[in-house]
């Protein structure tokens, strides 16, 4: 395509950052020009006719035919041929989209209200997507709750993710940079907040994986573990700075003395070390519909089996940490005792 057209295209198309982009954009532009030509022709003819054949004193319309098989055939067959070409071009591009490259690396994707989790071959889990330029990847996607959809405009790639099904898509990022990943299937209150970064690195895949050393929970501070789990699992619906989200904020949760529930019952706590409080938190993660906080919808899915008892313990440690509404990264490296304390808290009785 000629240069001026390409520079024009940047006003209505995102950057071309994947192997599909050029092919898709070619068809996009082809349809655009077909449309502009036919649309302008229609409108010009319409306005022209409206002007010269308008009713006015002294104007007597000349007789004209009311049907013409030739014309009908012309504008049946003509557009049909163009449409057939468009269909085949579209199908061609679609075939590329659906034929994963053999050397694609697999990344597991879990979509949940309202965030993303990406699991790499080395076991690392992140909430932003890290890719290497020119390394084809295949995303194995599952949903934790409702339907989501994975969409990166620059990649011209999109796929819905339905709960109870496995979906797979692939692409090859071709341009180093940072892009936005959108959820494009309406999934609830935080739908428009399900936007995360996609970073295409210059480093080759292996090097990138080596850099992203797997997070070792046993070598990190329990609070840091909790913070990481919060970002991956809880942050979509619960804030810790008191701002409103779908679920109740974690601010002040650890110092809570009394909790009222939607069914009219309530629970009192004597501090976050008490068994009642820990049981309540643990139950809320495993069986969220057992007790619904007054004023909030019953919307949280169960995380039973998705978070280990230890991990629930880390989250509890994190909750105590952010009780005041702010989070500070634990400065000193984790000590043995702290790690153990975290694990202990985890084995909260049912």
């Amino acid at each position: 395509m000629i240069n001026p057209l390409q520079s024009l295209a940047q006003f209505y198309l995102p950057k071309q950052a994947s192997n599909f982009a050029a092919e898709t954009d070619f068809l996009f532009n082809a349809i655009l020009w077909i449309s502009i030509v036919s649309f302008v022709a229609i409108v010009v003819v319409m306005v022209w006719f409206a002007v010269i054949y308008r009713r006015r004193p002294g104007y007597v319309p000349k007789p004209s035919p009311s049907h013409s098989l030739g014309l009908e055939l012309l504008w049946t067959i003509g557009p049909s041929l163009i449409l057939i070409w468009i269909f085949f071009e579209g199908a061609n591009g679609y075939a590329t989209l659906k034929t994963p490259s053999n050397d694609a690396e697999v990344i597991e994707v879990t979509a949940l209200q309202f965030g993303w989790q990406f699991t790499y071959p080395n076991g690392e889990v992140t909430d932003t997507l890290h890719l290497s330029v020119n390394q084809p990847v295949r995303l194995q996607m599952t949903s934790n709750d409702v339907i989501h959809s994975f969409y990166v405009p620059e990649f011209r790639a999109k796929m819905d993710i339905m709960p109870g099904r496995k979906h797979s898509m692939w692409f090859k990022p071709t341009l180093i940079g940072e892009y936005k990943l959108f959820c494009t299937e309406y999934c609830g209150e935080g739908h428009s907040k399900m936007v995360r970064d996609v970073i295409v690195h210059a480093e080759p895949w292996k090097e990138m994986l080596r850099k992203n050393v797997r997070w070792r929970e046993d070598q990190n501070h329990p609070v840091a573990n909790g913070h990481r789990l919060y970002k991956l699992w809880c942050g979509g619906c619960h804030s810790y700075d008191g701002s409103a989200k779908t679920g109740p904020s974690f601010k002040g949760l650890a110092s809570l003395t009394n909790r009222e529930f939607a069914d009219g019952s309530s629970l009192s706590f004597s501090g976050s070390e008490s068994d009642e409080w820990q049981d309540y938190i643990s139950e809320s993660i495993r069986k969220p519909d057992a007790k619904i906080v007054k004023g909030y919808p019953n919307q949280m899915p169960s995380f039973e089996g998705k978070l280990s008892p230890e991990q629930i313990g880390y989250i509890i440690r994190f909750l105590r940490e952010v009780d005041g509404g702010t989070y500070t990264e634990p400065a000193k490296p984790a000590t043995e005792s702290e790690v153990e304390a975290g694990a202990e808290a985890a084995v909260a009785p049912q």
């Binding site: 092919e23 898709t24 349809i31 449309s35 579209g90 199908a91 591009g93 679609y94 405009p153 011209r156």
Partner: peptide
């Protein structure tokens, strides 16, 4: 037309 064609519909859907 963009939405009927498969490859262009994918990013626009």
């Amino acid at each position: 037309l963009w939405l009927g064609a498969l490859s262009t519909d994918i990013p626009l859907h």
